[in-house]
Amino acid sequence: MAIRRGRGVAAINYPTGMNLGGDPTQALVHSTPTGNFMVTLSSVDLGQGMKQIMAQICAETIGVPTDRVIIDTADTDTGPHCMGTFASRGTHRAGNAVIQAAKEARQVMLEVAAEELEVNASDLETDGQGNILVKGAPQKSISIFDVALSAHFKRGRSISGRGMFLIPRSYPEKETGAMKPSTCYAHACTVAEVEVDDETGEVTVLSVKNVFEIGRALNPKMVEQQLVGGSWMGISHALYETTEPYYPNRDHGGTDFNQYLMPGPGDLAETEIIVLERPSADGPFGAKGPGEMCANPQIPAVANAVFDAVGVRIDTLPITPERILRALKAQAAG
């Protein structure tokens, strides 16, 4: 009887957005009189940080710091339609809608600035700090604060824009299944290292090294949040979680957090996250959806590591000590 060590690898990809498309999201952007920008949506923040990311996307597109963007979301009396937060679609779909709306608003803003500066709008650029400058002659400039005041009180212009993003729905061909499920895919590869106690069947995940390719890390700290939390959930799925431990038998289902098991703060694997960015052709600044796929590769990587450690295959999730012990017993019996 011994503690045995093993490691396993898994590599995966994951589609961004609703399978087969057909899932629209809209956004509206408008300026306040003093040049702050309101983004109106009906998208939902589940904790992944949708509000913050939409603010950064709008800010980058308009050319102002993020703290000058206000997000008004998920009130159906004000926000235009969004299909919802699921299928790794939020950043990709809503982000594109916000870019389109912000671009339209930016164009009006530049037109008003052009009138104030008596130049062509196409000769203007933003400095990202809240100013509009003449290209090549940055001493000639106007603040976005003043442009918004002028638009409101002098020129009667609405600095605003509408955005809509829709990937047309694909219908699978009946016989061949020819279809277009998604326009871009995120990728990952995980190496997991485990210890298995062949006396108790207990598995300890020592480390997971995760490499994720997500198109673009729009906010690296928030990407890290998502990927670390997802990696934890993947390990949890691999080893612990089910509402029906003896599926398809319906008995013994857990009804609370004492019976439904997940790793606690004392059960954490050493977790390494490496991010690659291959921008997608149609993502907002190249971003893909990282929120779901980040929890997938750990499951098979852990399963493969368990095999590497003790030489039994557990092909049924979750990989519980009971299943490992039964497999070891069957193996010993030959």
Binding site: Q225, V228, G229, G230, W232, M233, G264, P265, G266, T271
Partner: peptide, 18 residues
């Protein structure tokens, strides 16, 4: 710290940042 937080469930973060 781990002991002190062990009665609190978090489903998002994986605990390490906390």
């Amino acid at each position: 710290v781990v002991e002190a937080l062990s009665g609190n469930i978090c489903r998002c973060t994986g605990y390490e940042p906390i």
